[in-house]
């Protein structure tokens, strides 16, 4: 039992404390049991007949079978904001989408024409192959002059 439950029994709990009172799983059952105990103590001290039944348990067993109610009239804007808040994965998804769009643009854009995007092969081809190619090339200038046939 705790102080907040005792205050709740007396209707003296701060409204802001109700969330923390019921925050843990099954906390509601503990609160109900404590309230039953306080009711018994209260009735005894006031000389009233002690009323003991397990009706709350029966009612809650029936309520547990009911579909959970959501979004009633008194649901606050804050709670609605929780349900519509942006997901933490949105920035990642946005990045992927941007990359996709850029990739699509590049892929569908102008095809690579010779001379438009000169491929610099020097860095890719090993040096010794380039030297061997140069050495096998004819030194006769006429080799390179195209003549009409």
């Amino acid at each position: 039992m705790n102080e907040k439950t005792s205050s709740l029994f007396d209707n003296e709990i701060q409204v802001n404390d109700i969330d923390s009172l019921l925050s843990k799983k099954d906390r509601g059952i503990n609160v109900r049991e404590a309230m039953q105990s306080y009711q018994m103590i209260s009735d005894a001290i006031q000389g009233k007949r002690l009323s003991k039944n397990n009706l709350t348990d029966k009612i809650m067993a029936a309520i547990d079978k009911e579909p959970t109610q959501l979004s009633g009239f008194l649901a606050t804007k804050e709670s609605l904001r929780q349900y519509t808040a942006p997901s933490e994965y949105w920035p990642m998804a946005a990045s992927f989408a941007a990359l996709f769009v850029i990739g699509l643009t590049v892929f569908n854009g102008d095809s690579i024409k010779a001379g438009n995007n000169p491929i610099l092969a020097k860095g890719d081809i090993p040096e010794d192959i380039i030297i061997a190619h140069h050495s096998s090339t004819s030194t006769n200038m006429n080799y390179f002059i195209k003549t009409k046939d």
Partner: peptide, 25 residues
């Protein structure tokens, strides 16, 4: 207090409704 418990019940907290049951049964 009751209004707060009802709000919580409307958001799906059956335990909050259980407190109201205990209070008023």
């Amino acid at each position: 207090i009751d209004q707060k418990l009802v709000e919580k019940a409307q958001k799906g907290d059956k335990q909050a409704f259980g407190i109201l049951v205990e209070k008023y049964q």
